[in-house]
């Protein structure tokens, strides 16, 4: 049997190997994106941004639920115009994937859980400026190691259950691609990779991902409402690149669990550890 849902109290009584359901969420997001890429244009641009995200999470069986992994896959697209005058047109888009391992640490506050750990992520973002020419676009490919964590607050209001979660992810070190001040991609294509690949540290790159969400639980699933903020910044060779998106999200979430008839094994959930 496959269920999407929150834990059931009868599932806590067995001493057999616990069941660790796969937590899954899917969401779409819409909001505003602001960007500047001085390789393309000295000015800042702002406009709409949309995205889609899928998240998988699972508690690790062997650690009695104290560790979990998380995978995220997302993509976004936006179109922006110059903030100064509303002229010009820029399209931006990207895709990202990350894998995180986090330690679960309950707190003295009932329903409040902390998770912290590391994350490896890869992303590819492109900006296309419709002015054309030999510098119409930039593509930034980034692979980084990051710190990440979650504060999860499971709470009920009357009979309604909620899960409030905030998860920041802060890349610390990695590599990313970015052309020099006025280096054409044609020159890169010819083979000149000097100063094209950069070691990313907080000295030349600051990225951050912030997600705040409220899961409103229904019988076997939860409605996800939230907010997603993403910051990508690089400063290399007199070029400044920055994308900031602020999107509202809506989606669904739940545990995918398979329990046979008479199976009373305990269930260790990645996220929905209700009080």
């Amino acid at each position: 049997m496959v269920l999407l849902g929150i834990p059931c109290s009868h599932a806590q009584s067995s001493s057999d190997t616990p069941i660790s359901p796969l937590y899954m969420s899917g969401e779409v997001e819409i909001g505003r994106g602001d960007l500047i890429d001085t390789y393309l244009s000295p000015w800042s641009y702002g406009g709409w941004n949309i995205g889609i995200n899928v998240e998988l999470m699972k508690a690790l069986n062997g650690c009695n639920g104290s560790w979990l992994w998380q995978q995220r896959l997302g993509g976004n697209y936006g179109r922006s115009r110059m903030n100064i005058s509303g002229a010009g047109l820029v399209a931006s888009g990207g895709a990202n994937y990350s894998f995180a391992i986090m330690h679960h640490s309950p707190t003295p506050i009932c329903g409040l859980h902390l998770y912290y750990g590391g994350n490896i992520g890869i992303s590819a973002d492109a900006i296309y400026n419709y002015h054309g020419g030999n510098n119409p676009a930039t593509v930034r490919v980034d692979c980084s190691l990051a710190l990440t964590g979650m504060i999860v607050y499971n709470v009920s209001w009357g009979r309604q259950l909620f899960t409030i979660r905030y998860q920041p992810t802060l890349p610390v070190i990695g590599v990313f691609s970015q052309p020099e001040y006025a280096q054409s991609y044609y020159e890169v294509w010819l083979g000149n990779y000097n100063n094209f690949i950069h070691c990313g540290t907080w000295g030349n790159r600051f990225d951050m991902d912030n997600r705040l969400s409220i899961d409103i639980h229904f019988s076997n699933w939860a409605l996800r409402l939230g907010y997603h903020n993403r910051i990508s910044t690089t400063y290399t060779h007199n070029n400044r690149y920055q994308i900031v998106t602020n999107n509202f999200t809506i989606g669904f979430a739940g545990d995918i669990i398979s329990i046979g008839r008479g199976d009373n094994r305990p269930v260790i959930r990645a996220l929905y550890n209700m009080p």
């Binding site: 393309l40 000295p42 020419g133 030999n134 006025a182 054409s184 044609y186 020159e187």
Partner: peptide, 18 residues
């Protein structure tokens, strides 16, 4: 090799850059 940049009013300037 020419590059192109926007002006604040939306006009474009193309110039030899490389």
């Amino acid at each position: 090799l020419p590059f192109t940049y926007n002006l604040p009013n939306g006009w474009n300037i193309r110039l030899s850059a490389s």
